[in-house]
Each structure stands twice: as structure tokens, then as C-alpha cells.
């Protein structure tokens, strides 16, 4: 049976793992290679690696860090941050990334999704969407959540799927860093609207939040950062608990 995935996310800034609250107030959270290896060894199903400073600082190269992480782990990992062309993506894949996540660049130029899908296959293309509820409308934001767009979550998600996204990573900016649970209602609607896997992000604080995101939020994977980085939740324990609740988990 296909299992639900638990995905630690490493937010990278200047080569270090950081974590913010609602996309701000960054604090250091350890060496990314060390963290990646620890997560792989303790049962993480996949890793996501986002260079959160890359877009705004126009920084594109993560290559050497990607390579060191790839050497240290035996599970898949996705890398994002500042990818705006087939060449950018190729550099990351060549150094050991399995998938690339694109965000702002895809909103600005949606053809990028088609280009990446045709160059590397849909399964390589993760479209990350940061959105928050503004006047009852899930509004997509750019540049690490700083800039609102005219895009609405479901419309953009459908377009991304049609253009060749193999997976969607949805972060609710309203929930991110709060540890009050995931945006389950929006997630469930999203999961029923598109036919690609959905990674839920933003709001993980307790084991029960993970249980809810898979049952109520209908997510295929759940992503979290600080609860794992700061040892608040142990991945192995989390997966065992979810398994006893009847959620399919790799153990």
C-alpha cells in the first residue's frame, strides 16, 4: 500500500538551516548535512531543502550543499530556491537532487513548469505555493511570502497541474510556524481539485496535527521543520503513532 509521507523541511539561508515564524524572525537550527543524515536514518520518507534567500537575493547556486546532502542520504530529496530556468534545475539535479521545487518563478512565467516537465518529466517538478486567506480568498504570494498576487490557490493549482507539475507543496502562510495545526479545509479542497500528490506545509505542532492533516486534510505528505529540528517530535515515534491510528506509514 502506498504510504503517507513525513517530510522534514530544511530551510536554508547562507548555507545554514533556519526556521522562521510566519516566514520571518529566522533562527538558526543546525548544520543541514548533519540534519539531513539524521532524518534519513530516523525514518523520514523524503527531504525538502529550500533556499529561502535564493529568490530575493537572486542567488542560484546551492550545488555543493546539494551534493553533500545527496551523498549523506538514501531517501529522495527535493531542492528549491531561485530556480527560474531549465539550466538552474539541471544544475541541482546533476548534483543529486531528485526533484526541484519552483515557486515565484513559476507564477511569473508559468511556461517554466512546461519546460521543466518536458526536460525532466513531471515527477521532477514540484510547484510550491505559498498562500494566505485574504478576504475569504486563498491568495498566492511571491518572494518568500512577501508579495501578494492576483492568483487564487485552486485556479493556480489546476493550471500548475495542467502544465506538468508532478506534485504540489502548499504552505498556508497563516498557519506556518504557529504550531496550531495545518490548513486542513483548504488542503482537502485542493486534494479533491487536482489529481497530483499534495504536500501539506505550515502549522505542524503535535502528533494529532499530523493525524488530522492526513484524515481531514486528505494530504499525501506532511512537511514540517521546527518540530523536527528542535526535537519536539521524533519522526520514528510520530510514524508509529500514526500507524496505530490506521494511517499507512513506512516503518
Amino acid at each position: 500500500m502506498l504510504t503517507k509521507r513525513i517530510i522534514p523541511c530544511l530551510d536554508i539561508k547562507d548555507g545554514k538551516t533556519v526556521k522562521g515564524v510566519k516566514f520571518q524572525e529566522l533562527r538558526a537550527a543546525g548544520d543541514p548535512v548533519e540534519l539531513a543524515a539524521r532524518y534519513a536514518a530516523t525514518g523520514a520518507d523524503e527531504l525538502v531543502f529550500l533556499d529561502i534567500s535564493a529568490t530575493e537575493e537572486k542567488r542560484k547556486t546551492l550545488a555543493s550543499l546539494v551534493e553533500r546532502v545527496a551523498a549523506a542520504i538514501n531517501i529522495p530529496f527535493t531542492v528549491g530556491g531561485g530556480v527560474s530556468s531549465v539550466e538552474d534545475a539541471y544544475q541541482l539535479l546533476k548534483h543529486g537532487a531528485d526533484k526541484v521545487a519552483i515557486n515565484s518563478a513559476a507564477v511569473r512565467r508559468p511556461e517554466l513548469i512546461n519546460e521543466l516537465a518536458s526536460a525532466f518529466g513531471n515527477q521532477c517538478v514540484v510547484v510550491a505555493i505559498d498562500a494566505r486567506l485574504l478576504n475569504d480568498r486563498w491568495t498566492v504570494h511571491l518572494v518568500g511570502g512577501k508579495q501578494p498576487t492576483s492568483n487564487e490557490l485552486l485556479t493556480w493549482a489546476k493550471e500548475a497541474e495542467q502544465r506538468g507539475a508532478g506534485e504540489l507543496l502548499f504552505t498556508s502562510m497563516d498557519h506556518d510556524g504557529t504550531k496550531n495545526g495545518f490548513a486542513n479545509e483548504a488542503l482537502a479542497t485542493l486534494s479533491e481539485t487536482v489529481n497530483v500528490p499534495i504536500i501539506a506545509s505550515g502549522g505542524a505542532g503535535t502528533v494529532s496535527h499530523f493525524e488530522k492533516v492526513f484524515i481531514e486534510g486528505k494530504a499525501d505528505a506532511a512537511l514540517a521543520a521546527s518540530v523536527f529540528h528542535f526535537n519536539e517530535i521524533d519522526i520514528q515515534t510520530l510514524k508509529t503513532r500514526l500507524h496505530t491510528k490506521g494511517i499507512p506509514m513506512r516503518r
Partner: peptide
């Protein structure tokens, strides 16, 4: 078939 999410992505048995 579109009855399942495509791609088939993740850990299976």
C-alpha cells in the same frame, strides 16, 4: 488510470 493520483509517488510495498 485517473482513478489514482498521478504520478504514483512515495513509498509502496
Amino acid at each position: 488510470p485517473a482513478l489514482v493520483k498521478i504520478p504514483h509517488m512515495g513509498w509502496n510495498q
